[in-house]
Computed example of a mutant assay.
Amino acid sequence: MATTTLRQLNSFDETPASLADATVILIDFQNTYTGGTMELDGYAAAVAEGKKLLEAARAAGATVIHVQDKGYDVDSEGGKIIADVAPIDGELSVIKSVPNAYHNTNLAELVDKAGKKDVILAGFMTNMCVLFTAQGAFLNGHRPTVVAQACATRALPTTAAGQHHIDAQQIHDGALATVTELYGVVVPTVGDLA
């Protein structure tokens, strides 16, 4: 059964952002997600796609903002940004304390200062910080595009419908469907950006 999204009902533009006319926000690409309790399913593939996004953004001259969650002590090894997607001189950083990177940070100001309404999002975890930052972007008048394969999450327990857990792919897909419903555009890969 076909479903009409709230975006379609509101006639929102469904054109993905272009690197030349967007700010790229890389969310919580931190080492803590590469092993142990917080290891994400498919994190290595997401980092590889995130690296492609970062390289393409730099080549296009886009403003790049790196976000870190201070809950992982950003100065510790676990809290540091993964080397393949780490910032270089001149790239901006935001430290956040909740899933929405716009909440109680200067992210909105940095995006506004860059002069672009479009933002391109990627990172960890799809169902938490990527989803809530997409919502934050939307609520701040920005136009988010999420690169699906540059995001990852993990399986989670549930008691709904008699299940014991929901696998990571289902959670990832559900979060991206929520973005698509109202907050923004989702593209599979960096190559699918406008």
Rank of each mutant, 00 (worst) to 15 (best):
T105R: 03
V47R: 01
P144K: 00
E55D: 15
I82F: 05
G35F: 04
A137E: 07
K51D: 11
R143S: 09
Y102N: 12
G90L: 08
I95K: 08
V64M: 08
V47M: 11
T133G: 14
D89K: 10
K51P: 04
I65F: 10
E14Y: 04
N100K: 13
G36Y: 06
Y33T: 00
E91Q: 06
L131F: 01
N100D: 15
A122C: 08
L26C: 13
I25A: 12
M128C: 07
T126C: 04
A122S: 10
R143G: 01
L131P: 00
G36E: 11
V98P: 05
A57R: 04
V98L: 13
F12E: 15
F29Q: 06
A83V: 07
Y72F: 15
H66V: 02
D21Y: 07
Y33A: 02
L54T: 03
P87V: 05
R143M: 02
N106R: 05
A59W: 12
S76R: 03
G50Q: 10
F132M: 15
D69S: 08
G90A: 11
G79T: 02
L121A: 13
G123D: 09
L54P: 08
N10E: 14
T105Q: 11
F12M: 13
A22V: 08
A101M: 08
I120S: 05
Y43T: 00
V74M: 13
D84H: 03
A17R: 02
A45V: 01
F124S: 00
S97F: 06
F138H: 14
A60P: 02
Q135E: 14
D41L: 04
G141E: 11
K96F: 12
K80M: 12
D73H: 07
L107Y: 08
Q68I: 00
D21N: 15
E55K: 05
A114R: 05
I65D: 09
E77F: 07
G90V: 01
K116Q: 15
E49N: 10
A44S: 15
K52Y: 02
A101R: 05
D69T: 02
N10W: 14
F138I: 07
H103P: 01
G90P: 01
A56K: 03
S97N: 14
V74G: 12
I95G: 10
N10M: 14
R58G: 03
F124N: 06
H103W: 14
V24A: 09
A62C: 00
T32E: 14
N31A: 01
V111M: 13
L121F: 14
H103L: 12
I65V: 15
S76H: 03
E77G: 01
I82D: 10
L54F: 10
A46E: 14
A60H: 08
N104G: 00
D112W: 11
M125S: 11
E49T: 07
F138K: 03
T23N: 10
R7A: 12
L92M: 11
G79H: 00
E39D: 06
V64N: 08
D112I: 08
T23L: 06
V47G: 11
A46G: 07
D41Q: 09
